[in-house]
């Protein structure tokens, strides 16, 4: 089972929920931090790292001897990653989407596989739970291929918990794809509700069932609950606002280890998700 924890807005408690849920589930679970731009989950966990690997993307490398300067590669490339000039062919690795159009179109077979570093993939474990995350190289703009690499580590016999990046753009969609269930974490404010609506829109477009977790319940209004009821989206959990929670989080500690009621909350949450997925 694959569960993605997402939120339209950042800072609603996505990582708090995924780290605590994974810790609660123990060896049954596997945690994958797909927020490759800002991987944070590892900061809350005592991870023993097992493996680190550099992730690369395929880019063209031109054999100038074979190149006849026909210009076909520049024509097909939608991303301007390859620029054929009269005397030479320039490649701009950071613009390349690895579609291989230039490889296929080159009549002289002058384009070979080169590579560009996207970032690193690191795997490890905390207690008995497996952990994987990716870290995008600073200045690298393309997160989706690295997210796909992180997701290749999903094991079918585990409950895979995917910590998604915030928002509703391409990296989020790439994380959510192929999930069995999406948990949307929000807060009871107009910002929270506005961004929740966008995130629900994405889950609908993907056709994946979703449920809502309201964090910091009590600080704002009840418009999120009203809206959820209207839309017939289940509210899976309401986490009351508690300054103690914010302080434990700030210290980088786990709530299931510090506050006994959190284990009950996590159990309740996974039971509700299971019921939907198994149906």
């Amino acid at each position: 089972m694959i569960i993605t924890i997402a939120s339209g807005k950042g800072g609603t408690g996505k990582t708090t929920l995924s780290t605590n849920l994974a810790t609660f589930l123990g060896k049954e679970a596997q945690l994958l931090d797909c927020d490759v731009e800002e991987p944070n989950a590892h900061l809350f966990l005592d991870i023993k790292w097992d493996e680190k690997q550099t992730v690369t993307a395929v880019i063209p490398e031109v054999d100038e001897e074979k190149c006849s300067h026909c210009g076909e590669c520049g024509e097909i490339c939608q991303f301007k990653a390859i620029a054929p000039l009269e005397s030479t062919v320039l490649v701009f690795p950071e613009l390349c989407h690895s579609c291989r159009g230039c490889f296929l179109v080159c009549p002289e077979d002058a384009i070979k596989e080169g590579s560009r570093e996207l970032g690193v993939l690191e795997t490890g474990h905390f207690n008995s739970t497996e952990f994987t995350h990716g870290r995008l190289r600073i200045g690298e703009a393309m997160a989706p291929p690295l997210i796909k690499k992180v997701k290749e580590r999903i094991k079918p016999d585990k409950i895979a918990i995917l910590d998604a990046p915030p928002g509703t753009s391409c990296p989020v969609v790439n994380t959510m794809m192929d999930s069995d269930y999406i948990v949307l974490v929000t807060e009871p404010t107009p910002f929270g509700l506005h961004d929740l609506k966008l995130a629900v829109g994405v889950t609908k477009k993907l056709g994946i069932p979703c449920g809502i977790v309201i964090n910091r319940h009590g600080i704002g209004d009840n418009k999120v609950e009203q809206w959820a009821e209207n839309q017939e989206i289940p509210v899976l959990l309401k986490i009351p606002f508690d300054r103690k929670v914010a302080e434990i989080y700030a210290e980088g500690k786990l709530l299931v280890e510090e506050l006994p009621e959190w284990s009950g909350m996590m159990k309740d949450l996974i039971t509700k998700i299971r019921k939907t997925v198994d149906r």
């Binding site: 950042g10 800002e38 200045g139 997160a143």
Partner: peptide, 10 residues
Amino acid sequence: GPPGVGCPVI
């Protein structure tokens, strides 16, 4: 500005 350090922030 947007959050993160990815494409929108750049």
